[in-house]
Amino acid sequence: MTDIDPQAASDAARAVPGVPCDAEGPTFREPWEAQAFAMALALHARGVFTWPEWAATLGAEIKRAQASGDPDTGETYYRHWLAALERLVEEKGIASAAQRTRYYDAWDHAADRTAHGQPIELKPEDFT
């Protein structure tokens, strides 16, 4: 799983309402959730966005999903987290929607050729 700085995770959990937590800090049901959380921590640490900016973007993504019928049971929280991450990455000019789609497609191709249980590795041919 992803190594997450406990102090940074604690700071994020205090700054961003709704982060699923237990007594030890943020909790994750799937490895990708921890990875998305860690990506947001890393971008925040690099000054890409503030926690209030993040919270506003995340809130907007949650409201958009609710308006589209998301039952808001908590199970989709990190899907909204990922959508907010993608939105800010695009808005801040870190990567475009086309670049994100290119990597998504490459990742999908790499996953198709990778045996179950093995790490997925991107190769140059995944981008063609």
Rank of each mutant, 00 (worst) to 15 (best):
A115R: 11
T114E: 14
A15F: 00
A98H: 09
T2D: 05
E33A: 12
W32Q: 07
I94W: 10
E30I: 04
V16I: 10
R113D: 08
D108R: 13
E125K: 15
D22T: 00
A34C: 06
S10M: 04
T114L: 07
E61L: 01
K92R: 15
E86P: 03
D126P: 02
A9L: 08
A111E: 13
G25E: 02
H80I: 01
E90D: 13
A34E: 10
Q66A: 12
G18D: 04
A8F: 05
E121Y: 11
D11I: 00
A65Q: 10
A84N: 06
H109G: 01
A115N: 02
E61G: 00
D108L: 08
G93S: 11
F37P: 01
W51M: 07
A15Q: 02
E53C: 07
A60S: 14
W32G: 00
L85Y: 10
L85D: 02
F37N: 12
A40L: 09
I94R: 15
A40I: 10
A106K: 13
A38M: 01
A98F: 03
K123M: 05
A95L: 12
V16P: 02
F28E: 14
A56L: 11
R29N: 08
W107Q: 05
A9I: 01
K92N: 07
R100N: 08
Q66M: 05
R113F: 03
G59P: 09
W51Y: 12
P26H: 05
P6W: 06
Q118K: 14
W81E: 05
T101N: 06
E86W: 11
P71F: 01
F127T: 05
A40M: 11
Y78I: 03
A111C: 13
